[in-house]
Design a protein around this nucleic acid. Sequence first.
DNA 1: ATTTTAATTCCCGATATTCGGGATATTATT
DNA 2: AATAATATCCCGAATATCGGGAATTAAAAT
Lengths: 263, 263
Amino acid sequence: MARLKQDLDTRTDGRNAIADRAIEILLSFSDDKPVLTAEQLREANGMSRSAIYRYLTSLRANGFVAEEPGQGFRLGPKLIEMARIARRDNPIMDVAQRHIRQLAAECGEIVQLLERVGRQLILLEKIDSQHTIGITHLRGGMLPSPAGSSAKVLIAFAPQNEFDELLRSVDLQAYTAKSITDPKELCRQIDLVRQNGYALNDEELDEGVRAVAAPIFSRREARYAVSVVGPSFRLTDEALPQLISKVKATAAAISSELQQRDS
Amino acid sequence: MARLKQDLDTRTDGRNAIADRAIEILLSFSDDKPVLTAEQLREANGMSRSAIYRYLTSLRANGFVAEEPGQGFRLGPKLIEMARIARRDNPIMDVAQRHIRQLAAECGEIVQLLERVGRQLILLEKIDSQHTIGITHLRGGMLPSPAGSSAKVLIAFAPQNEFDELLRSVDLQAYTAKSITDPKELCRQIDLVRQNGYALNDEELDEGVRAVAAPIFSRREARYAVSVVGPSFRLTDEALPQLISKVKATAAAISSELQQRDS
DNA sequence: ATTTTAATTCCCGATATTCGGGATATTATT
DNA sequence: AATAATATCCCGAATATCGGGAATTAAAAT
């Protein structure tokens, strides 16, 4: 009776399904849902009671999840430790840190650094804005999802063999009045992004929120993106040109520093 | 022919052995060895070629490890993202940050914040010292291992049911001339730690390195420890008393803030 | 204190999924 | 081009997960 999910949409070739499932459990946690009960985790991942507890026991013993007495589980402290090592050795973190802090200081808005891994957009760094009146919470990033400015950039400059699949995976739902819902329109914009070297997000995901993003190149690939996010009343059409050039300059500076390193 | 390791020293009751193995692979990476080839990982974890690649494929697809072109693998960017969430929801991180930064500023030495999870000592935060002439690299922490100041504190104030096992798991090798090698001596020191409310490490792990640690209480348990680490020529016998009181004060402040939260 | 309820752990046979070894394909090196 | 090293694919064997439900423990309510 061990009938497993056997996801049809993701290939299970040459992978370890159980390791994948363990990770899936970890990915159930998000900014929105930082604490989950065993029951919620069971349901979210479609497993039996015995199974989820077996996973949780292993994850907890290793500090990957922690138990909050009456509440449930949350991501554990070991992840914090491992991230220190991951940061230390991720070439981009070292290089980008200084640049994006300066960008944040200059424009006073939220600045983000993202990395694309397959169809995932991973948020590496986020510097909060000085303005308390800012965007407090942003949609986290895993494609298939709607395309914000960073996603547009990373799709536009993706290598050919991945490009089509990425483009297809964009969610075209209408989250706001300005959301992109037409594939043709998306293609048109992506083309523009490639021409201009930057992408905009004009309230397409959240009402009143605009963003600018530019690609960072590493080994001739656009693996990372910097973006500035802020309220439309500050990121006005008048303010945008200067902001765009700042974002592009920052991205370019990081790119060139990365390139020097490789040599 | 699927003969697995079946570790004898760790119970596999009610756990998920494969998830454990996946985590074990991640734990192969450390500050000392941030980049490992598939072959090194295979060897370190005693698995077959096919097996290690299956694990790595899953881990890589999820961004838990990343591939460095000619070098091998390193911990991946997804860990950085997940750590952000883990931090955000870890009560201690929010509270302790400010206090340990101030402590670091006051004493100008390395300050560390650790959490105990079972027999593991997890490094949650490390603030580097201003002095470039300091300790660059510290032994990472998983018991069984030698007991530094933080370990002493966390053992001394551990709950009864865990105390004996923890004490037994201490490594009594002679790393330096001053290392504790006698179990009796360790017990005596642990008793003192419990009486005094702090622990010292007087060049017991590394020549010329001293440390002071104090326990942080959360829900009537000493789950965390703050420690200050520095060279013996600055952490002199004359300087220690003041440093000890500062470390204790910091720990106490964090403890009381945590307690307030719980109410 | 006692009952009720929920949450977690334990047990078991069935079988899905890992396992290792070796062949194959790909990439790097000389 | 030839060699070496690395990575993927394929297979039967069998380990270790799987789910269902019972048993235990913890928590909540009466």
